[in-house]
Design a protein around this nucleic acid. Structure first.
Length: 257
DNA sequence: ATGTCACGCATGGCGTGA
């Protein structure tokens, strides 16, 4: 994919490898800069940036309050060509025990604060949110009623992130009537019957969202022998320079008010 | 609703989390 399509930026979740085994050298050979935040076990997020953007990127510090262990292996951000891109892996909160639930909600709330702080900046957050925003994003809503993936509390926290950051759910904006599932249970038949969920999202700040020309679920990565149970989102932006310029102007206008 | 998988702990399965 890196050798063929040559995307500008790739955000990965669940790298599931210690930092030592993260293939920095191989990525460099392929012409990509990489940043990796390893997870203690199954997490781990990374961002790859095509090397020709080297002169036009920064790594902001203090992203999602790194003082808290909660962000370890779950959040990374980089600013490329004036656009801040976050790669996120929200805790699943699988058991829905009080502890897990609190961890997931605390994480979502930290994201909302971060989004609020950066709301004047061109921002694109992508990754596994472990929240299906609405019942349209779940294959059988009654089975997921108030579950950890589709609970009302989780959904409200997700809406708060979008409100605070003035963020748009890019896939839903472009595909109002499709389900656009990105994740399926590993058990036999679930993918074939499209028993899936849309929990992998791309949230773009509003002026940036108008420059998103394409957002698709890439089913090619669900083919082959024992693929991931997730399918990636592909996103294309039009007129990025113009967009960054217009957003700078917006921010400047906002600062003057 | 449930037809999987990899892992840790510990060595043949079981419990766990996604």
């Amino acid at each position: 994919m890196l050798a063929g399509e040559r995307p500008d930026v790739v955000c990965l979740q669940e790298t599931r490898c210690p930092d030592k085994r993260f293939p920095r050298g191989r990525l460099r050979e392929l012409g990509y800069l990489s940043q990796h935040s390893p997870g203690s076990r199954r997490g781990g997020v990374a961002i790859l940036v095509r090397a020709d953007h080297r002169e036009h990127m920064t790594h902001p510090s203090g992203a999602l309050d790194h003082k808290h262990d909660i962000a370890e292996g779950r959040w990374l951000e980089v600013t490329v060509e004036g656009i801040t891109i976050g790669s996120v892996y929200v805790p699943a909160g699988h058991t829905r025990s009080e502890l897990d639930d609190a961890g997931k909600l605390a994480f979502l709330e930290a994201m909302a604060r971060q989004a609020q702080e950066e709301h004047e900046h061109p921002l694109l957050i992508v990754g596994d949110f472990n929240v299906a925003p609405t019942d349209q994003d779940v294959y059988e809503p009654s089975w997921f009623e108030d579950s950890y993936l589709a609970g009302s509390v989780e959904r409200e926290d997700l809406r708060e992130i979008m409100r605070e950051g003035h963020l748009v759910d890019v896939y839903r904006e472009l595909h109002p009537d499709d389900r656009g599932f990105t994740c399926w249970d590993q058990r036999d038949g679930h993918y074939a019957r499209d028993y899936g969920l849309r929990i992998d999202l791309a949230l773009a700040s509003q002026p940036l969202a108008s420059h998103v020309s394409r957002c698709e679920v890439d089913h090619a990565y669900r083919q082959g022998h024992r693929p991931s149970n997730h399918a990636p989102l592909q996103i294309e932006l039009d007129d990025v320079e113009q967009c960054a310029h217009c957003l700078d102007a917006t921010a400047a206008a906002g600062a003057g008010d």
